[in-house]
Amino acid sequence: MGYAGDGADKEGLAPQAGLTTGAVARRLGVSPTTLRSWDRRYGLGPASRAEGRHRRWSPRDVAMVEEMCRLAAAGAPPAEAARVARLTHGERVSAASPVPRAAAVPAGVTPRRGGPGGGLPLGDVRQECRGLARAAVRLDAPELASRLLDAVGQHGLIGAWEEVMVPTLRAVGRKWESSGDRYVEVEHLLSWQISTTLRRANLVLPHAADPVGGDPVVLACVPGEQHSLPLEALEAALEGQGVPTRMLGAAVPVEALLACVRRTGPAAVVLWAQSRSTASMPLARHVGDLRWGPAGARRRPLVLPAGPGWSRRTAEGFLRCTGLAEAVRTLSTLSGADGAVRRPSPGRD
């Protein structure tokens, strides 16, 4: 990471001074609150303050917290990582007993590739993904919660899901698959924090619509399917449009799904399948054939197979949406959230 020692810097560098806390936080992918916490707990703060008690970070200060990030991402306990970071960069060491660079990784910790995302295979992604990945690897739940809500506020729910949450989840999943049983705790914590953020998203978004009347949309994972986060994102986005929903969640038994459809008379039923082994066209057809209402005016739901488990061939004859935004537009129209109720053809009785 480069560092300019003089001149003005748009990232928070004052003339002839160091970086501001905000600028250091942006460069490292952590929050200013985290840096202040490290200063209070471990003494990893700037050595000097400008007039007005503003904190300014020198090159040595920045190198010290960079080392803290690297060691924490490698799995070192925070206190031990801070101790080594101070010895390596923060405290002056005599020439007679220098601390070698190789000794910077505490005993018993297997080094991992540092850099953006703490070694996760992120690729070309938004900067927010890198900060999320670092927080996930550190198992820093408060930092994850703060960053996820910030992403929703900045990009909106759909943008945050597609451009920040999903790329980070995929990176963690790839790392888990290539590392045996490692990183399971990282994926679980990240998934839980994303799920929590999706449920809270419409509390922080300023333009969430009021609920509209009309028939709801039923959201369910097919039997045997445990991956419900995409459905949670869809439910949150529909809620933001005022669309009533009935979320059934993961691995819904067939009879429970059919009972819900019969009792609620939904405008549409979304069936999520993450893998081809769980996608069931007989189930989709059965749900689509359910009818209710008086003779001559019977209705049935539109069935929307969703997820990578449904191939174009197996889902032939059913409506497909290419992404979250298109699904929200389609389902909003069916439920009348756009002001025009349009129901699918009832078919033959």
Rank of each mutant, 00 (worst) to 15 (best):
Q226V: 04
G180Y: 00
T20A: 15
D210T: 11
P301H: 08
S275Q: 15
T110S: 12
K175H: 12
T21I: 11
V261M: 02
T322K: 06
W310A: 01
D150L: 10
W161G: 01
G293P: 05
A151V: 10
T21L: 11
V152H: 01
E67W: 00
P344F: 05
A256S: 15
W176I: 02
V261Q: 00
A76R: 03
R285Q: 15
L290Q: 13
L258K: 05
R291D: 04
L324G: 00
P253T: 10
L283F: 09
V287K: 01
L189W: 07
I194C: 10
G119N: 04
L229R: 04
C129A: 11
V172K: 01
V254G: 02
R101K: 13
D140C: 07
R199L: 13
V303D: 11
A50Q: 08
A96S: 12
P301C: 11
A340V: 15
A220M: 08
D9W: 05
T196V: 13
A327W: 03
S48D: 12
R262A: 12
A267H: 05
E239C: 08
G159R: 06
L87F: 00
L248A: 03
T88W: 12
L35Y: 01
V186H: 05
V252H: 03
W310K: 01
A259K: 07
R86M: 12
G5M: 14
L290V: 14
G2P: 14
L19V: 08
G265F: 00
A306T: 11
L87W: 08
A107G: 14
G240L: 07
Y183D: 14
M165V: 15
V252D: 01
Q193V: 07
A141M: 03
L132S: 02
S311Y: 07
L238F: 05
W57A: 04
R86V: 09
C129H: 02
S195Y: 09
D181Y: 08
G18C: 11
E316D: 14
L87D: 07
P32G: 05
L71C: 04
R276V: 14
H207R: 13
V270S: 04
P206Y: 05
A325N: 08
S332T: 15
D9F: 06
P211C: 09
T245Y: 10
P100C: 05
V62H: 02
L290K: 02
Q226G: 06
R56H: 12
D210P: 05
